[in-house]
Simulated scan of single mutants.
Amino acid sequence: MLMKGYDGGPLVAGESQLARPGFWSNYLLAMCSDGACAERPAPEWFGDDVADADAMSEVLFDPEHWPAFRVPAEDGPGAVVIYRNMVGDYGTDYLLTHPDRSCAQQIASWEGDFSGIGLTWHELVRIADTSSAAAEGVQDTAARLLLLLPLLTDPDLPEAAPARLTATLAAAGAPQETASITAEHLLAHLERRSRHDPTWKSPLSGS
């Protein structure tokens, strides 16, 4: 897989990893670990166990293979999530793809904390709900929304957001009895760190 700006990194298509046990706890558990939780977060919150999570970590953070998860959209910008497994410079990069541009635009990264420009809930859901069957990448709506979730920087979430995220987590394998609590912790973390300024131009505009 080739992508401008990652010529030195061995990118590999990561979409096949989404269905493997341990993926979602690796991807989202850190967002539940900063004081929002009365109890210690665990892989079981996402339907995984510790052994699965550890095995998945070895795959996701392999310096010789940088998983890239493509989230193409039918009409408008899509996204790519890349595990940047450079020794000494690990991180997760978030890029937007635009129909009228030949290269992707990095808008954010996660290196123990979020930095960059995020999306509103409406923008995030719009990308998640408009998959492009003609393009390679993630087609499942639940997986698309969860991949984009770390980009959420919206201080005014709609009332429907917790229920939507709860259903999404359950669809991705989280236990039905705990999915709502997991959604609550994730959104609490995202709302606390939210830096979205309504005067900013959305990265979806191509600005």
Rank of each mutant, 00 (worst) to 15 (best):
D93M: 03
N26A: 13
S102Q: 09
F46R: 10
S25P: 09
A36S: 10
A79M: 13
R40I: 06
P63I: 06
G22R: 12
D89E: 14
V71R: 08
D62G: 09
A55N: 07
W66E: 01
A36C: 08
P72R: 01
A30N: 05
H98K: 00
M31L: 12
L29E: 09
S33M: 05
D49F: 06
G8S: 10
L96M: 13
A79D: 13
E64K: 15
S109D: 08
E64G: 12
D49T: 08
P41M: 03
T97E: 15
L96N: 10
A51K: 14
M56I: 08
G14F: 01
G76N: 10
T97Q: 12
M3R: 08
W24D: 10
Y94F: 15
I82T: 12
E58V: 10
A55Y: 00
P10D: 14
D52Q: 12
R40W: 00
G14T: 12
R20T: 13
E58T: 14
W24P: 15
A38F: 04
W66R: 07
E39N: 10
A108I: 14
D54E: 09
I82K: 03
I107F: 06
A53E: 07
S33F: 01
I107T: 07
A51W: 08
D100S: 06
E39K: 15
D54W: 02
H65C: 08
S109F: 06
K4H: 11
V71N: 03
R101G: 04
D100Q: 10
Y6M: 06
R40Q: 10
N85H: 05
Y83T: 07
P21H: 12
D89H: 13
G91V: 01
Y27I: 04
D89S: 13
R101T: 03
